[in-house]
Design a protein around this nucleic acid. Structure first.
Lengths: 242, 242
DNA sequence: AAGTGGTCTAGACCACGAA
DNA sequence: TCGTGGTCTAGACCACTTA
């Protein structure tokens, strides 16, 4: 058994059961769930536990809790997949493309001072560089370059081709969990080399995503993604006050 | 008095005091805050209250709470302003530009079916359209068009020029609070009209942000922002698993 | 005024991490 | 094993919304 017999907190049980009742429309959209003392009786738990479960449901956009009036079930179609940038392959596959890596190259490299600064590394410091050309329906669509702090990923140089998702690889092999990211999205025209690699006319618009990923507020890696703008767009869903 | 004498929950007092102790480096980065029972004694509150305060601090990236080991103070430089797209004027002002609206036009308009669909409105439905040209250091930099569900903003047609921030106007005059947003960011080349309005050569790369804003999971408005890509970039900060 | 969620307590026991 | 945070209870009182 890998991770089977873990105790499930009762607020998670309450959370799951209420979520099911919402999803199977026992509590339909627009209706109100029972008041908290009643939920306590239904699940035989204290109000603290009910409230923790409801707070989770509110955070995920299932309900709107309002003091004085009650807890309303929301139409969740519009608030799914909150707080994230949709991933590259996910977006393309939703559009009907088949996504794969053309090839991958891993080496050591001294990046620009901007990148070293974002990674909290000194000048002239080497990092692990992973270069990939991404294909959609066998057409080149993006050039992706990762710059990873080398101390965190010993031995990664020999992992060429052994992983598909870099983030899953970092978590499973090195125990690194990405907890935050900062993306900067720009656009500019393709230069000669980019136009050759992506098989585009020179001057075609490109989307550039520069991302720093963090684990526990420490930077882990920087990524530059250069994409054919005619075939790609970024989707971002955010909850909370803008 | 507008909203002065509101009772402050004691978990907020605890939250603010611990935040101050972190900011003035009584609890420096890398150190551990006192264990929860000690915090209870220090602030004379129950552990529930301390834990609510600490949960807030963790959510905002001040600390990392770890069962078994303790609560560590994090370096917060890297995790500020999480979960939002930085606003237009904010980004430009950080770069030293002075931002203002050149002019504003408000009318009724029948938008594309895509927009009507995103706003859950039927075909041929009119919406309130707000068109603006944004200036940075007196140079045109962006064309912004808002499409708002008309029932939500009666009388807004006469508000031309009476507001700077649309979202603050919606909240103060109509009580509409934006709670979520979905952005799609694309890039393409400027056509003739765009190049005239933004004073750019035809074919220059443009960034396009299409945003739907929501209040309590109901769509409120759609926005199209067309920006000179050489002068602007989007920054997005996200916390949580990618 | 009635009914809802919001805050808070004091104490108990469980589960994880490091020594 | 010991010290930390994680979960949970039963009950109390406060504050907001609606009518």
């Amino acid at each position: 058994m890998k991770s089977a017999n873990k105790r499930i907190p009762s607020y998670m049980k309450v959370y799951n059961q209420i979520k099911d009742l919402i999803l199977n429309e026992t509590y339909p959209i627009g209706s109100f769930v029972p008041r908290e003392p009643d939920l306590c009786n239904m699940f035989d738990v204290s109000r603290t536990t009910v409230r923790k479960a409801m707070a989770l449901l509110e955070q995920e956009g299932f309900v709107n809790i309002q003091q004085g009036s009650g807890t309303e079930v929301l139409d969740r179609k519009t608030t799914q997949k909150l707080n994230r940038v949709t991933s590259f392959s996910e977006t393309l596959e939703a559009k009907g493309y088949t996504v794969q890596s053309k090839s991958m190259h891993i080496d050591m490299f001294i990046p620009s001072n901007n990148i070293l600064n974002d990674l909290n590394l000194p000048s002239e410091n080497q990092v692990v560089r992973i270069q990939r050309i991404q294909l959609a329906n066998n057409q080149p669509i993006a050039i992706i370059t990762n710059y990873i702090i080398p101390d965190l990923v010993p031995g990664i140089l020999s992992d060429t081709g052994t992983f598909v998702s870099l983030y899953k690889h970092l978590e499973s092999k090195y125990g690194i969990k990405i907890t935050a990211a900062r993306d900067t999205i720009r656009a500019r025209s393709a230069d000669f080399l980019e136009s050759e690699l992506l098989e585009l006319p020179i001057g075609s618009p490109l989307l550039i995503d520069y991302r720093i990923t963090y684990s526990l507020s420490k930077p882990i890696e920087a990524v530059v993604m250069i994409v054919d703008a005619s075939k790609y767009e970024f989707s971002i869903s955010l909850s909370g006050r803008p």
